[in-house]
Amino acid sequence: MTPTAETPTKKSFIKVTEVWIPNGSRTSLELSSGIYGDLEEFKESSRDESFVFDEGLPGKAWATGQPVVLTEFNDDNFKRTEAAHKAGLTCGVAIPVFAGEFVMGVVTFFCGEDGFHAGALEVWRSLRTFPFEIVLEDGYYGSLDDFAFISRKTRFRSGFGLPGLAIEQRLPVVLGDLANSGVFARSFDASRAEMTTALALPCLGGNQGDTVVCLLSSEHMPIAKRYEVWVPEDDDSECLRLHSALCSIDPDWEEMAEDIRVQKGLGVLGQTWLTGIPRTSESLEADLCPVATKAKEMGLRNMVTFPFMERGFLKAVVAWYF
């Protein structure tokens, strides 16, 4: 029998996910899609918003070509400050997607304080002056002050730790069971903080060096219940195959999905591969992709897809479901 998701009683570490894409003239970013949960007023404030180059959080990520973290909102750095404060949002992260020098979209995540808030959003950077050293540029840790302190003191070399592995493999990386992971260098501290899963999204070739965005979450405040990394089957393939996966609902999902192939253009996942544009979906009911069908059977409703580009070519699509 296929497992189903438990009754949703857990809070999500990420409160809002948005995708901003260029308008027809490519002079500003407009809202393409988003997942807002019950934050209807913030959703309404975003619906008709737009950002020109270097304006607001999405525009800043566009201008710098790098992930941007805001740990406080004010009118100087954020256009929707009043709506964000009213919604209880306290942190925002923007990740741009580029094909060569052209922006394809910007994904924004927002978190909020509500008592015990276990999780982390991190941006790690490979230093140009020390090309083998990767340092924490910025991060948001909710109530995890001890883990934040350790992270700010930690440095990696390429191939070591989660950020170093993502840069060395030049692919997104998903990890589970952080407390016992031989890859996650802060496993002891992750165990104390009760963090269990991690997703690393590399942003390669920026003007300021390679960066990696790490999304860390706990069992109590998961970012997602299923993570997947899909890659083209071969250089000329019209299909994606599963590269890696992690599922809290069914631990056998990665093995079960080995034989699934996703056609270019089919469903949210296939559309992301076809267009190179990130996407969100608040309902998978009409999605005919077999991966989405299995997600629905597990009781999952929402989906985020993120294309991973290098030198203008799409190398992978990351998907997570909740």
Rank of each mutant, 00 (worst) to 15 (best):
D48Q: 12
D48G: 02
D48L: 11
E49V: 04
S50M: 12
S50Q: 14
S50H: 13
F51K: 11
F51A: 14
V52S: 12
V52W: 02
V52H: 04
V52N: 09
F53Y: 15
F53T: 15
D54F: 07
D54H: 14
D54P: 10
D54K: 11
E55K: 10
E55N: 11
E55I: 10
E55V: 14
E55D: 13
E55W: 00
G56K: 03
G56C: 00
L57T: 03
L57S: 13
P58E: 07
P58D: 12
P58R: 10
G59R: 11
G59E: 09
G59D: 14
K60N: 11
K60D: 12
K60E: 15
A61R: 11
A61N: 08
W62T: 12
A63I: 06
A63K: 14
A63R: 14
T64F: 15
G65S: 10
G65V: 09
Q66V: 07
Q66D: 01
Q66T: 07
Q66N: 07
Q66M: 01
P67S: 14
V68M: 03
V69H: 08
V69L: 09
L70M: 01
L70R: 08
T71P: 07
T71N: 08
E72F: 00
F73E: 05
F73H: 09
F73T: 14
F73C: 13
F73A: 14
N74I: 06
N74L: 00
D75N: 00
D76S: 03
N77F: 06
F78P: 14
F78I: 08
K79C: 04
K79A: 07
K79N: 08
K79R: 10
K79Y: 00
K79L: 10
K79H: 04
R80C: 14
R80H: 13
R80S: 13
R80F: 08
R80D: 09
T81E: 02
T81V: 09
T81S: 02
E82F: 05
E82W: 01
A83C: 11
A83D: 06
A83P: 00
A84C: 13
A84N: 06
A84S: 12
A84D: 01
A84T: 11
H85W: 05
H85P: 06
H85Y: 04
H85S: 01
K86W: 11
A87W: 04
A87S: 12
A87T: 08
A87E: 06
A87D: 04
A87V: 03
G88R: 07
G88K: 03
G88W: 02
L89H: 00
L89Q: 02
L89I: 06
T90L: 07
T90H: 08
T90R: 09
T90V: 15
C91E: 02
C91L: 05
C91T: 14
G92S: 03
G92T: 07
G92Y: 03
G92M: 07
G92E: 05
V93H: 05
V93L: 15
V93K: 07
